[in-house]
């Protein structure tokens, strides 16, 4: 297991996430794409920490911030889905031509 291999796997996860976030109509599937992108970045981050941080815990701290971002993204995303559904009955992106409530 080399650092380069992990970087490639992380890049692949990020690429899959980009594809998902751009191609999916459903809000939740779109969020899955974003999750995959964050996951790919997390993998790359930890790989770099393992390779080049001399064991300093700062890299792991940053990873914990990433996880916080993940949790924030999910919960606010779900809240927005609920709110948008209440107002527009919308469950896919095509139904939201304008953002004004």
């Amino acid at each position: 297991m080399t650092t380069e291999a992990v970087l490639v796997v992380g890049a692949a996860l990020f690429g899959i996430g980009v594809f998902g976030a751009l191609s999916q109509q459903s809000f939740v599937m779109l969020m899955m794409g974003i999750e995959l992108m964050i996951n790919g970045s997390l993998l790359v981050l930890v790989a770099m920490w393992a390779r080049a941080a001399s064991g300093s815990p700062d890299g792991q701290m940053l990873a914990i911030v990433f996880m916080t971002v993940m949790a924030v993204e999910m919960s606010l995303g779900f809240a927005l889905i609920t709110g948008v559904y209440r107002v527009r009955r919308a469950d896919i992106t095509e139904k939201l031509r304008k953002l004004k409530g």
Binding site: G10, A11, F14, G15, V44
Partner: peptide, 8 residues
């Protein structure tokens, strides 16, 4: 997606 993967 492919461009993002290749770039990174």
């Amino acid at each position: 997606g492919v461009v993002a993967f290749l770039a990174i």
